[in-house]
Structures are given as structure tokens and as C-alpha cells.
Design a binder for these strands. Structure first.
Lengths: 185, 185
DNA sequence: GTCTATAAGATGATAGAC
DNA sequence: GTCTATCATCTTATAGAC
């Protein structure tokens, strides 16, 4: 399974289309077309559509880890947590149009019990674990519960922003979130 | 378009299957089978699959209005809001398995821009409006923003409970939510 | 109103030439 | 490694008998 340019292009294409249209609504012909790869050639890189889905999940997880790595540069756990919410606020236009790239992906895939994608390394789980670490550094005993709360609010706000088609919902919730973090001390 | 027993059975069947498998993953053959109605007969009641989807959305909206009507019996806006979160806590097993029936439905349909279902009467919008009314009765100037926060938290927790396959996440978030409502006063 | 049979089109996947 | 052509299947939707 060589890592060629075409393979990367296919994953990138699928990532975008899965976000915009959903996984089930996206055909391999769509993916191939956007990547400028002939349909039949897709099967050289991915034996099945499920395999392509797995590759997309992995890629999303990598993105999340990269983002968290950048946030880790910030000095305090409080600013790091606020930086997380800020990220969704910055992407609010995109999220309002198509939903959160990782939330909507997880939501759709969790329905099909194809155990191909294990829950262990879900992108959402990475976010929760990281948030828990920040809250623990802040001395919170209930770090785990609060971590779920953190990701909950971001994901819920993303869903509403999408449903109402209004990016401002996400921006306002990010602001409320910042105040909440300040209140934790 | 007569309202027969069969029509009701088809809507009920679709409602369940859309929740368990998603809208796109559910075929009209599935819906017909669960409703014990021959496939061809489905088209007497619904000209297209989209029409059936609209009927399901309407039915979900009715369910929400019914729930909120029951909660309106409670004495204070605080207990009414807590009653809302309690509802999701009670259904946590189901939500952890298949996601929130209205959240996952909205999330999936918001991707397909088929304007067949107007955003005006989305079940989520009904929840937000009602929450806003409660918060306004509590004297909050920022009632609208907080209302989005209320529904956000419930929806976000539902998504995480589904992704982690753990109903307790929803129960714990409901508990945190109750404390938050008490702190608003 | 009800149901069977089937048309029409799309989609995942494969065979095999180059 | 790459691509064309195509198969097999599934799914929405319709035609038309009862």
C-alpha cells in the first residue's frame, strides 16, 4: 500500500465530500472525480469504500492531534481551553454550512455498526482526553466530567449552528464558554 | 391523502428506522417490511421518499411539542428546564445506542440541501424557543443566547454518549446542567 | 384502496488490457 | 501501477391487475 500523491488526493477529496454531503451520500465516483483520478483506479488504493472511510477518520484524528499540539504551546490550561473553542469560532462559517467535520462524521458512522472503525481512537475521544488533561492541571477533581462538558458544548453549538444556518450561534457560545472557563479558576 | 392506520404505521416504522440506521441507510423496503405493508403500497401514501421524511419530521416535532406541553405543568421555569434535561437522562440508553432522535435526524438532513423540509419548524428550533421562554420568565436578558446553550449541551452530550457508547455521559451532563440552572437564579 | 411485477437508474466492485 | 469497460446488485418509482 504505497503512499503516493494520488492516494493522498483521494483521501483529501473524500474528507471534503464526506463533510459536505455525508459519507453515505458520497459515491466513489464523486471522490474520484474531485481527486481527478479514474474511478477504477480508486480500488488500487482502497479495496473497499469502508477502507477509504477509515483513512478519512485517521486523517481527521491527525488533524485534531496537530491542532492540540499547537494549543499546547500556550502558557496556561485556561488559555489552551479557550483556544480550543476559538478554533470552532474561527471555522463558524464552514461549520454552519456543513456541520462540525468530526462531529457529523462520528454521528453518521456511529449508526452503522460496521466495527471497521474502532471507537478507541475516535477524534472526539482525543478531544475529550486532551480537555481532561487541561482541567486536571487546573486542579479539578471532576476533570473527566467537565471534559465531556467542554466537548459537549462545542459539538452541540456546532449542531445548532448548522441547523439554524447561523454561524453567530457558534461565536456566541464560544464567548459564553470563555466566561465559563474564567469562572472555573 | 387519507389518514389511515397503514399510513400511521409507515410513519412509525420510518421514525424508528431513521433513528436506528439513519435516513439514507434506510430503504423504503425496510420501512414497508417493519410496517407490514407491501412495498408498492407505500407509494399510495407517500409519492416520494422525501415526502415520508417530511412526515417523520412533522411527527418528531409533534412529539417535542407534546413533551414541552407536559413540562409546562411544572410550577417554575427552573423545574421545567431541569425536566427537559431529565427527559434525555431517562432515554440515555436509547440515545447512547442510536443518538438523539431529533439531533441525529437534523444533522443528517441539514447536509442534503433538498429544501423540502423548511428550517422554520425544525424540532430543534421548537426546543430553543421554549427554553428561551423559560429563561425570560427567570428574568434573564440574555435568554436567547442561554437557550441555545441549553439545547447545545443536551445535543452535545447526546453525541458524545453515542460516540462513546456510554449512557452515563448523558446522565452526568444532566446533573451538571441541573446545578447550572440552580446557579442562574 | 391494495398489491405484484417490473422498469429505470445508480453504485460498489471486478476483470483484464496496457 | 494505471485505466476502460462492465457486472451484479440494490433502490426508487411506476404500471396496471384486482
Amino acid at each position: 500500500m504505497p503512499v503516493t500523491d494520488k492516494r493522498a488526493r483521494l483521501v483529501e477529496s473524500a474528507k471534503g465530500l464526506f463533510h459536505e454531503q455525508g459519507v453515505l451520500a458520497t459515491t466513489l465516483a464523486d471522490v474520484a472525480a474531485r481527486a481527478a483520478v479514474p474511478l477504477g483506479n480508486v480500488y488500487y488504493y482502497f479495496k473497499t469504500k469502508d477502507e477509504l472511510v477509515c483513512a478519512v477518520i485517521e486523517s481527521r484524528s491527525d488533524e485534531v492531534r496537530e491542532l492540540l499540539g499547537r494549543l499546547d504551546q500556550k502558557r496556561t490550561p485556561q488559555t489552551r481551553l479557550k483556544g480550543l473553542a476559538e478554533q470552532w469560532g474561527d471555522a463558524s462559517e464552514d461549520v454552519a454550512r456543513y456541520g462540525c467535520p468530526i462531529g457529523s462524521l462520528s454521528s453518521e458512522l456511529d449508526k452503522s455498526h460496521d466495527t471497521a472503525w474502532s471507537r478507541a481512537d475516535s477524534p472526539l475521544a482525543i478531544l475529550v482526553d486532551w480537555s481532561e488533561a487541561q482541567l486536571r492541571q487546573m486542579g479539578r477533581r471532576d476533570a473527566r466530567d467537565l471534559a465531556f462538558s467542554v466537548v459537549s458544548r462545542i459539538q452541540g453549538a456546532s449542531l445548532l449552528a448548522q441547523d439554524f444556518g447561523d454561524p453567530e450561534i457558534l461565536v456566541r457560545e464560544a464567548r459564553l464558554f470563555e466566561r465559563w472557563v474564567d469562572g472555573l479558576a
